[in-house]
């Protein structure tokens, strides 16, 4: 991916704090810092994968970018336009270019609407005129995602999970969006169906020149479909790099631990693999650890990790890491930890 291109989507220092209230007067007593200052760019035609464990803020990020949630601070720029605080009315024409695929194909489709109504809804809402009528357009899209166009009048319950996810994808594609945010698009599906949907997403990307942000917890799926991958932990991006670098020479200890925790379908790996086992659970985002948020579970943590927050620094070309003691780092940077500077 070339960085000289104007990014399609640019997110700067994005934050979302959900207030925690108490008592009759709804006094605010704290905030869940679901997303706490993240920045990334997405270039046209690429796929950015967002991975992390539950509660790390990856889904919130997806919802902020599509403005389904109102950001607390930061900036979202899509095709040069700032949509951070745009009104819902002003956003509506932009929604055409920015669509979302949801995780659960059961709850994201209205059970009382036919497939034709569901997939045709974007045309009606946006007032788009199609050449041969909406029905023809919907049937074309159904064929594109591998569904039978004759099933136009069927209801969601008549389809299997995989087919429902295809209906969701068809609805997403109806208006030929430029950017698609896919939030766990395959995690609710069976193994054999997952692979079909992953292949479909890739084919559609090639055919329609789509840009994806794929949010998932499954590191193998993310590696398969992404060009670049960002790893999140407790509302922060801890590492972002192109796929090959991130999976072959991860620098952040958390990324290393995540990769080593993925079970590998090879009985030999049981004995041959080197394992890193994290202890404990992800701390609560209500009260995240100070400075480096990973220090409570990190085996490399030292005093500096508890007092100084590591900035997200570019340690190799296109490879940014927020860690005082990165692994696999090029020699030049290894000496820096002592001189780590506090971000303002």
């Amino acid at each position: 991916m070339t960085t000289s291109n104007e990014p399609l989507l640019s997110v700067q220092d994005l934050q979302k704090h959900f207030p925690v209230t108490k008592g009759l007067l709804k006094r605010q007593v704290g905030a869940v810092k679901a997303v706490d200052g993240i920045s990334f760019d997405v270039v046209k035609g690429e796929t950015l994968g967002l991975v992390g464990e539950s509660g790390c803020g990856k889904s919130t990020t997806g919802r902020l970018v599509t403005r389904l949630l109102e950001p607390t601070a930061g900036k979202i720029v899509f095709e040069g336009r700032d949509l951070t605080h745009m009104s819902q009315g002003a956003l509506r024409p932009l929604r055409r270019d920015m669509q979302m695929i949801f995780q659960d194909p059961y709850s994201s489709l209205n059970p009382r609407h036919t497939v034709g109504t569901i997939v045709g809804a974007p045309y009606r809402i946006q007032g788009v005129k199609t050449e041969n009528g909406i029905k023809k357009a919907v049937q074309d899209i159904l064929a594109l995602v591998g569904l039978n166009p004759e099933h136009y009048n069927r209801y969601p319950h008549e389809f299997s999970g995989g087919q429902r996810q295809r209906i969701g994808i068809a609805r997403t594609l109806a208006l030929k969006p430029k950017l698609i945010i896919a939030d766990e698009p395959v995690s609710a599906l069976d193994v054999s169906i997952q692979a079909q949907v992953v292949n479909l997403l890739e084919d559609l990307q090639n055919e329609l020149d789509l840009t994806y942000v794929v949010i998932a917890h499954d590191l193998s799926v993310v590696r398969h479909i992404s060009d670049r991958v960002a790893v999140m932990y407790l509302g922060k991006i801890v590492e972002i790099a192109d796929r090959k670098r991130l999976y072959s020479s991860p620098m952040h200890p958390y990324t290393n631990a995540l990769l080593s925790a993925v079970p590998i379908p090879d009985p030999k790996a049981r004995t041959e693999r080197e394992r890193i086992r994290l202890t404990g659970d992800v701390p609560s985002p209500l009260n995240p650890p100070p400075a480096c948020r990973f220090h409570t579970r990190c085996w490399k943590a030292q005093d500096v990790c508890k007092t100084v927050e590591p900035p997200l620094e570019e340690l190799a070309s296109g490879h940014r890491v927020a860690c005082h003691f990165p692994e696999n780092a090029p020699d030049a940077v290894v000496q820096t930890p002592t001189g780590a500077v506090a971000p303002e």
Partner: peptide, 11 residues
């Protein structure tokens, strides 16, 4: 479960 916790439980 999440992957890191999954690994702990399998162990």
């Amino acid at each position: 479960l999440d992957v890191t916790v999954q690994a702990q439980i399998l162990d």
